[in-house]
């Protein structure tokens, strides 16, 4: 009798310790992306574009070629890479400030061109790196350091639903919104991330997974409670599910 490993960190992570706060979901999603890269056997041809925000160091956490784009421009950088290297696999990893505020034009047009890239979109309803300011995805009534009295529709508009917006574009081949606050959701999310990569690999078009995530530090809620807060507050605002799937089921 001997022990056989059932669960162990994936090869496609560099092994560097994450710079994220305790309980932050970035780390879970990083691990899932790396597991998918391992399973697809694409580590040696994957190119990563990290954003500006908490995950600005993400290019160091993956054992693949990587760069950091200017704030919000990751889909444009990835477009240039993919057009130059169509045989490679290119993905962007972006937060809600990066993708849904300053980079709205770049993500919309990359998706609309059916750019054969994959985007992992972390929606935690707040700006993390800069210290908890309002994001376009901040919930109505939610207090942040730049909406100290709570976000109001009258002054700041409504939470921006990126998955729904992009789902109207014919260039999109896979699009889903998910969460990782429970083990079952983590497993489901991994399957979605895999499909978002397959959309690119099979040449079908643009793939994106929006992951509802916690920011315990800037929400001011301990990690375990933050998972519950996400369930009770974010899920009702941001419906989960698969919005576009032209990839189909795995054979």
């Amino acid at each position: 009798m001997s022990y056989k490993i059932k669960f162990k960190g994936p090869e496609s992570l560099s092994g560097k310790e994450f710079t994220y706060c305790p309980g932050c979901h970035h780390g879970i999603v990083h691990r899932l992306v790396a597991e998918v890269i391992d399973e697809l056997g694409i580590r040696e041809k994957t190119l990563m574009v990290a954003p500006v925000g908490c995950s600005v160091f993400a290019y160091e956490f993956f054992d693949v070629d990587g760069t950091v784009a200017p704030h919000g421009r990751a889909p444009a950088v990835a477009t240039g890479m993919k057009r130059a290297m169509p045989e490679n696999v290119v993905f962007t990893y972006q937060g809600d400030g990066d993708l849904a505020a300053i980079g709205t034009a770049e993500i919309l047009h990359a998706a609309n061109r059916g750019e054969k890239i994959t985007t992992i979109f972390i929606n935690n309803a707040i700006y993390g790196m800069t210290g908890g300011q309002m994001a376009p995805t901040t919930l109505l009534g939610m207090k942040t350091t730049t909406s100290p009295y709570g976000r109001s529709a009258e002054n700041e508009g409504y939470p921006l639903h990126m998955a729904e917006l992009l789902s109207n574009l014919p260039g999109v081949a896979y699009l889903a919104r998910t969460k990782v606050n429970k083990p079952q959701d983590v497993l489901k999310t991994k399957k979605m991330i895999k499909k978002a990569f397959l959309a690119q690999i099979e040449g079908k078009g643009f793939g994106m997974v929006e992951v509802l995530s916690t920011c315990p530090t800037n929400w001011g809620i301990p990690p375990v409670e933050a998972n519950k807060w996400l369930e009770e507050n974010m899920v009702p605002e941001y419906p989960l599910g698969v919005y576009v799937d032209k990839v189909g089921d795995e054979k």
């Binding site: 009798m1 056989k4 162990k8 310790e17 994450f18 305790p22 309980g23 970035h26 879970i28 990083h30």
Partner: peptide
């Protein structure tokens, strides 16, 4: 393992 945000956990099982 699934929930760990820092990839700290390894799970093994005894096999013949």
């Amino acid at each position: 393992y699934q929930m760990c945000p820092d990839v700290c956990i390894t799970v093994s099982t005894l096999e013949k």
